[in-house]
Nucleic acid binder design. Structure first.
Length: 465
RNA sequence: GGCGUCGUGGCCAAGUGGUAAGGCAAGGGUCUGCAAAACCCUCAUCACGGGUCCGAAUCCCGUCGACGCCUCCA
């Protein structure tokens, strides 16, 4: 039984879907006004892993991830660059999609955008006004009336009274209550705007997600996800809007990932401590970022630095070692040992599932996988043939792909391989003549070109990396 | 100030009542001409102080500390 920690109840709960074997999952995407950084990569990876695991468990996942393509940040940046805001948003959407692809993240089924959901947004705003949950203010904005919503604050565990103290009301706002938030914002000159019953304007930050949910997945969904920095106010407000509008529970499970930390602080655009996804991928493999995420609990802060990245990279190497071919002189191991290896593979598969079923406990799942790697390597050392290793390696590959790890050996240009083979062959002759310094020289030079040579009693193997 | 999460070996990190998984690093060993890889061995009593219990990292109280949110944010 899959259990998932639900932010709403602060407990792990048995996961049950509204519709048999179908998971409706909505994940809050990004506001597209700048290059994405590795913090965004983390959240995207977390939900990619969740999605892959749900599919592995036999669910059909309706995965929706939105793009917020109209808001203050985009408009400001567009003004800076003297670019059309919508074109700028499009540019960053394309860019972000490419980042996700490079990170081996499966594309969501649907990527709705605020600007393409105007009809539903206005329908909701209208409905909320009719039901008394919202009001058009004198300044042309439409606000949600938090005092009308009895359980406002249930997701973030806040009470309206507690929040009032710290609430800041900007001058000129026409709110009834300081915590009321905008559903619709009247357009200022030069801003992108849409016609509405309340005059030209654009949607507030939160309503778009409610509307996109309604449009793409319906009134109720199974999982709503995002970073834990969105719990308040964004998700709190989504709940308020959606549930006030439909009168039904909005999302059954709220899943939130922890923040990526750089130098002890959350990585964020406003703090400026940013490592871009593209920058990261120019230095390290996508698997490394994924391994870093897998090494920790998705809800906890993730420490991002050279030390943790190096460890992740080495850990990956270790997983890859399990996939290597049998030794050149493999004579086979007794059938008893071979079937033991297969039982180990089955046991690992079971521990893996148990771990992942417990709120996606990836560190524990990885521990299980490492156990299998050790068993495979031991069998190989004992002389297992490729045929004997294959079933266990198949399981290893399968489990890693559930986590989204590719474990690709590095590759050079394919043409080089033949020449390296030749060089290695010649070096073997040189070694037979015990010309060690020459053979070591070849090994060192190849190493600096990215080719690793490994000698053993039975022969020499080489690989990229 | 309020709300929330959390504090496990050099680093990352599982473990929520019965005497501490895994990875990285380090040291020793097998193998090797040397090296690399792989394999074997070694390496923590769980922030601090009280309490409950036959028994606590795990429950309760307190203290200290970290991080997130309360304002745009994955």
């Amino acid at each position: 039984m899959l259990r998932i920690y639900n932010t709403l109840t602060r407990k792990k709960e048995d996961f049950q879907t509204l519709e048999l074997n179908v998971v409706k999952m909505y994940v809050c995407g990004v506001t597209v006004y700048n290059d994405a950084h590795v913090g965004h990569a983390m959240f995207a990876l977390v939900f990619d892993i969740i999605r892959r695991y749900l599919e592995y468990r036999g669910y059909k996942v309706k995965h929706v991830m939105n793009y917020t393509d109209v808001d203050d940040k985009i408009i400001n940046r567009a003004n800076q660059l003297k670019e059309d805001p919508l074109e700028l948003a499009q540019r960053y959407i394309d860019d972000y999609a490419q980042n996700l692809k490079d990170l081996n993240i499966l594309p969501a089924a649907i990527n709705p955008r605020a600007t393409q959901t105007m009809g539903e947004i206005q329908t909701m705003v209208k409905g909320l006004i009719e039901k008394g949950f919202a009001y058009a203010a004198s300044n042309g904005d439409v606000y949600f009336r938090v005092t009308k919503d009895p359980d406002y604050g249930k997701l973030s565990g806040r009470k309206l009274e507690d929040m009032q103290a710290g609430a800041r009301v900007e001058v000129g706002e026409a709110k009834e209550h300081p915590m009321d938030f905008a559903l619709w914002k009247a357009a200022k000159p030069g801003e992108p705007s849409w016609d509405s019953p309340w005059g030209k304007g654009r949607p507030g930050w939160h309503i778009e997600c409610s509307a996109m949910n309604l449009k793409e997945l319906g009134e109720q969904i199974d999982i709503h996800g995002g970073g834990n920095d969105l719990i308040f106010p964004h998700h709190e407000n989504e709940i308020a809007q959606s549930e006030s509008f439909t009168g039904k529970q909005f999302a059954r499970f709220w899943i939130h990932n922890g923040m990526l930390q750089l130098g002890g602080e959350k990585m964020s655009k406003s703090l400026g401590n940013i490592v871009g996804i593209r920058e990261f991928l120019s230095k390290r493999d996508a698997d490394v970022m994924r391994m870093l995420v897998l090494a920790g609990n998705y809800r906890a802060p993730l420490i991002f630095n050279d030390e943790t990245l190096d460890a992740a990279e080495k850990s990956l190497e270790r997983l890859k070692s399990g996939l290597r071919a049998a030794r050149p002189d493999a004579k086979g191991i007794p059938s008893g040992s071979a079937s033991e290896l297969m039982s180990q593979a089955e046991a690992t598969q079971q521990s893996f599932t148990n771990a992942m079923d417990d709120d996606f406990n990836t560190p524990l799942a990885l521990a299980a996988i490492h156990e299998l790697v050790k068993a495979i390597n031991t069998a190989r050392d004992e002389g297992a043939t490729d045929d004997q290793l294959k079933p266990a390696q198949f399981t290893l590959r399968e489990l890693n792909s559930v986590l989204g790890l590719r474990l690709q050996e590095k590759k050079g240009s394919g043409d080089a391989d033949k020449f390296i083979d030749l060089l290695v062959e010649v070096r073997s002759e040189v070694r037979k003549q015990k010309l060690w310094s020459l053979s070591d020289q070849i090994r060192d030079k190849l190493k600096s070109l990215g080719v690793t040579i490994e000698d053993s009693k039975e022969g020499t193997t080489w690989r990229w990396g």
